[in-house]
Amino acid sequence: MKVDIYSKPSCSLCDEAIDVVERVRARIPFELRVISILEDPAGMMAWRYDIPVVLIDGQLAFKHRVDEGALEAWLRRAQDGTEVAHLRARDE
C-alpha cells in the first residue's frame, strides 16, 4: 500500500496529519510519501485549498484532518483486499 500526503511547510494541520499517519504506520506497514505542494505544480493546482490531503493507493481518503481510527480501518480493508470505496474523504 502507498499513502501520499500533500502538505506544505509551516502548516500545523499538515504536521498533525503526518503525526497521525506515522502512528498508524507503526501498526500497519505501508509506503509513505510526503509531498510539498510548493514543489509539485500539479499538487498545488489540485490541493492548494485543501491541504493536508491523504491519498491511499491513489484514492482520496482525507482532506484537512485525518481520523486515526478511520485511517486504520481504511488501510486494514485495503490490506485485506476489501473494497473501501464506501469510505469517503472527510470534509468533501
Rank of each mutant, 00 (worst) to 15 (best):
Q59R: 10
Y49A: 15
R65T: 12
D57C: 06
R77K: 12
A78F: 03
A73R: 10
L75F: 01
V53E: 10
Q59P: 08
K63M: 15
E72G: 01
Q79V: 00
D80T: 03
D67E: 08
A73Y: 02
G69Y: 14
R77P: 02
W47Y: 14
W47L: 13
W74V: 09
V66Y: 11
F62G: 11
A73V: 01
D80I: 00
D50N: 15
L71S: 07
L75A: 06
W47H: 11
Q79E: 02
A78S: 02
I56K: 00
L55M: 13
E72L: 04
G58T: 08
A78W: 00
Y49E: 15
G58Y: 12
V54A: 14
L55N: 05
L71K: 00
G69T: 14
E68A: 08
P52I: 02
W47T: 03
W74S: 00
Y49T: 15
V54N: 09
W74G: 00
E68Q: 10
R77T: 04
R77M: 06
A46Y: 01
D50E: 13
R77V: 00
R65S: 08
A73L: 03
A73G: 06
R76N: 06
R65P: 08
H64P: 06
Q59C: 08
R48E: 13
D50K: 15
L71F: 07
K63Q: 15
A70G: 13
A70D: 07
L55G: 07
Y49C: 12
A73N: 08
D57L: 02
L55S: 10
W47C: 06
L55F: 09
V53C: 09
A46R: 12
Q79G: 01
W47I: 09
E68M: 08
P52W: 04
D50F: 15
I56N: 01
G69I: 15
L60H: 09
D57T: 02
K63N: 11
W74E: 03
D80N: 01
D57K: 03
W74Q: 02
R48C: 15
D50P: 04
R65Y: 13
D67H: 06
R77N: 08
W47A: 08
F62R: 03
V53I: 08
Q59N: 14
A70W: 07
F62E: 05
D67S: 08
L71R: 04
R65Q: 14
A70T: 10
W47D: 11
L60D: 13
G58I: 05
V54M: 12
L71V: 10
Q79W: 00
Q59F: 01
R65E: 12
Y49L: 15
R65K: 10
A61E: 07
W47K: 05
E68L: 09
D50A: 15
E72D: 05
A61C: 02
R77L: 02
D67G: 11
W47E: 14
H64G: 09
R76F: 02
R76I: 02
A70F: 11
F62I: 13
V54E: 10
A70Y: 10
Q59D: 13
P52R: 09
K63E: 10
E72H: 01
V66W: 05
V66K: 03
I56V: 14
K63F: 09
R77Y: 00
L71Y: 00
L71I: 12
